[in-house]
Write a protein that binds this DNA or RNA. Structure first.
Lengths: 110, 110
DNA sequence: GCAAATTAATGATTTATTCAAG
DNA sequence: CTTGAATAAATCATTAATTTGC
């Protein structure tokens, strides 16, 4: 019943994927908030869209990895650990103080 | 490191439990928002606290039921379906206007 | 009685599973 | 079939009960 779902614009998608590749796989709510604000420049977007995107992307990434592991008994490790990317608990933490309290979830229109 | 977690006041807890008993076991975000507003009269509280409370309460309710089922192979079905309680996806939809612009529900203290 | 040690509750997060739009 | 949305289950972490030795 007309529950159109969000679809990332190419720009938005690129940015998201880039962040993910750079090691931001599990943003806290504050980061999600910032990303949402940023991406809203390229089209309608909500907090939950960004939140879900990362959830799903990470989950399905792992799924893929597990499937490959089933086929190749001993495959090389995935691309590479974040090492020292721009994100990943680095200084880009939008936490005002350390030990982020973290998140929560959705809000839906219904 | 002073990451005190939320603790419902007796009043808040009573209200939550009452809603749950009345059939509101899975409030949508809008309902959570309203409940949060209401409960904030009795003490500090955030959207996510309410959200988590229902999640946990429902989950642990089911846990209890499953445990009992393990002991009694064929127990009578749980109390009764909500039938026509005050909540439960009824007309109680709290949307102020259709297709809510979304807003912002996740306030985090930080 | 009273703390230190253990255990039980429960708030908070993460991960897995499922549903449904397109 | 892909992927956004939502729910459920599993897990982590902290606080409250409680047990225990003194």
């Amino acid at each position: 019943m007309a529950r159109a779902r969000w679809k990332p614009t190419p720009q938005q998608l690129m940015i998201l994927q880039d962040m993910y590749k750079k090691g931001l796989t599990n943003p806290n709510s504050c980061q999600v908030q910032m990303i949402t604000s940023h991406l809203s420049m390229y089209g309608k977007i909500q907090w939950k869209n960004v939140f879900y995107w990362f959830q799903n992307h990470k989950a399905r990434d792992r799924q893929k990895v597990r499937k490959q592991q089933k086929q190749n008994p001993i495959p090389p490790p995935p691309p590479s650990p974040p090492s020292s990317s721009s994100y990943a608990s680095g200084p880009v933490n939008c936490q005002l103080y350390p030990n982020s309290p973290t998140i929560f979830l959705h809000q839906v229109h219904y």
